[in-house]
């Protein structure tokens, strides 16, 4: 049996035919759409390396069946920069050494983008740490990650203020 679905991935609408309903959105992105930025760490929702935004909200892409997300809008790490201009969260991760080996970084960055959109953390490092607890970093770059999220949030807020 085959399943037809439509997904918008990084702004591009794609018609997708699946031969198997077991395909997660993570496997679809990586194996079929060749977007390998989202990482398969634990594949069980424990590490956050697969984090993407679905309809604007951060989720674990390893724990969602693609067929169930028919019609959804998906944003991955590949869709974040504008040409050569990095997204403020990406730039802040570089400025603050928010990574070492880099494996968890796409998930960390997508999670941070989701956290900032949710608007619940404010400028409180404790709330940022709590809000980022679904993303593990085995290199232990948490201090840099927290600083990067706080700076990116401040920058995005000031850009929004200027645009208004």
């Amino acid at each position: 049996m085959s399943f037809s679905l439509t997904l918008t991935v990084n702004g591009e609408t794609r018609a997708i035919d699946l031969d198997d309903p077991r395909v997660t959105i993570l496997d679809l992105l990586r194996e079929r759409l060749h977007l390998t930025g989202s990482k398969k760490g634990c594949d069980r929702g424990q590490c956050g390396a697969c984090t993407v935004l679905v309809n604007g909200r951060r989720v674990n892409s390893c724990l969602a069946l693609a067929v169930s997300l028919d019609g959804a809008d998906v944003l991955t790490i590949e869709g974040l920069a504008r040409g050569d201009a990095l997204h403020p969260v990406q730039a802040a991760f570089i400025d603050h050494d928010g990574f070492q080996c880099g494996f968890c970084t796409p998930g960390q960055i997508m999670s941070a983008v989701g956290l900032i959109r949710e608007g619940q953390a404010g400028d409180d490092p404790e709330r940022v740490r709590e809000g980022m607890s679904g993303n593990l970093c085995r290199c232990g770059a948490y201090i840099g990650i927290t600083q990067a999220v706080l700076e990116a949030q401040a920058r995005l807020a000031s850009e929004q203020g200027e645009a208004a």
Partner: peptide, 9 residues
Amino acid sequence: GASAQLRNA
């Protein structure tokens, strides 16, 4: 409970 990603889903 859980993580922000899981709570969103």
